[in-house]
């Protein structure tokens, strides 16, 4: 029987493989251990607020697994400096919402050092960060801000959609020589799925056609891939064949696969957990209009959250988040 893991466990496995195979990989962040190695005191470490990095300090020690103070700017800035001087740091920004306290190291340092220095330095930094709604974590712990980092030249942004994807994409991200923002959507963290054993990478910048179809394309990524697949199943029952594309990485963006799917189906729905303005959904929609206009048989539809903060109430949060029904409605509107 195939082995199944949660996304959190798959990420943990990817980190172990990366740290065993490269001594320059270090892990740093708030509570990545939680008080360092406490095993001798008869206590166990937290291993991160969601337990994703539990067990690592025991194997790799406190030199390579660094608990930082709750100081995101110092944490990320230090990680950038370490990346520019011989290490391959994996830094954890607990929730992407905290980017407000630490944008400078990403916006003005990690993303620009190589360019400003005329290509004479590399910054092989990966920042893992939890994104998205779905845990009633409310407005400051639930945002899908990957559109911000996607818009910054010099950064790469990756959003996996399943446990197996998370493992392969994280290994590729850590081993990438450019700074990568690796988003972990809450909607997939507890998802359990088959995960291959051993060391494998999924290349950045290559979208994945998860399901083939001929009548409509549904471009999705992260937690919305599952919604797209649900919608595709329902559409099939109604006689419509939907193709589902998982972008995997937002920067670089695999324009070729998006446009090839559009050419095949003539209709495009883009699904994105984030708020609509300046979103990935509208960016992909603009791409379809700009470079795929002749393929379009209907207006491009975007399914996103509304232009509002993320609410706490479970009822409101459900109303906020895109659903499979929203995708079906969008397809219906296309006629």
């Amino acid at each position: 029987m195939a082995r199944e893991l949660s996304t959190g466990a798959a990420i943990n496995e990817a980190i172990v493989i990366a740290m065993r195979s490269d001594p320059t990989v270090i892990l740093m962040g708030e509570d990545v251990a939680g008080g360092g190695d406490r095993s001798k005191e008869g206590t166990e470490e937290m291993g991160g607020v969601l337990g994703t990095t539990r067990g690592l300090v025991g194997e790799f020690g406190m030199n390579r697994v660094r608990d930082t103070p709750i100081a995101e700017m110092g944490l990320l800035g230090t990680a950038v400096g370490a990346a520019a001087t011989g290490l391959r740091p994996l830094a954890e920004l607990m929730f992407i919402d905290f980017i407000g306290t630490c944008l400078d190291p990403l916006l003005n340092q990690a993303s620009k050092l190589r360019y400003m220095f005329g290509g004479k330095v590399k910054v092989p930094l990966t920042v893992r960060t939890v994104t998205g709604a779905g845990m009633q974590a409310a407005a400051q712990h639930s945002q899908s801000l990957y559109w911000m980092t996607t818009g910054i030249p010099g950064l790469k942004t990756v959003v996996p959609s399943s446990p197996a994807e998370a493992k392969g994409l994280l290994l590729a991200s850590i081993r990438d020589d450019d700074p990568v923002i690796f988003c972990e959507p809450k909607g997939i963290l507890n998802q359990v799925g088959e995960v291959p054993e051993g060391d494998y990478e999924i290349p950045l910048g290559q979208a994945h056609v998860v399901r083939e179809g001929g009548d409509v394309s549904i471009v999705s990524f992260g937690a919305t891939v599952a919604l797209a697949l649900q919608a595709a199943t329902a559409l099939e029952a109604a006689g419509t064949s939907a193709e589902v594309v998982d972008l995997r990485s937002l920067s670089p963006l695999d324009e070729t696969t998006i446009l090839a799917s559009l050419e095949k189906t003539g209709r495009m729905v883009v699904v994105d957990e984030s708020t609509p303005r300046c979103s990935i959904a509208r960016d992909v929609a603009a791409l379809c209009v700009d470079k795929g206009f002749d393929f379009l048989d209907a207006p491009v539809k975007c399914v996103t959250a509304p232009h509002a903060p993320v609410p706490f109430s479970a009822v409101l949060e459900k109303a906020f988040m895109p659903s499979a029904q929203d995708i079906l409605d969008a397809v219906g509107e296309m006629g």
């Binding site: 030199n63 390579r64 700017m73 990320l76 800035g77 230090t78 370490a82 520019a84 001087t85």
Partner: peptide, 13 residues
């Protein structure tokens, strides 16, 4: 912080 990271790098290595 970049310099702090360079110092961290020296210590780790």
């Amino acid at each position: 912080p970049l310099v702090t990271g360079a110092a961290l790098s020296a210590q780790v290595r």
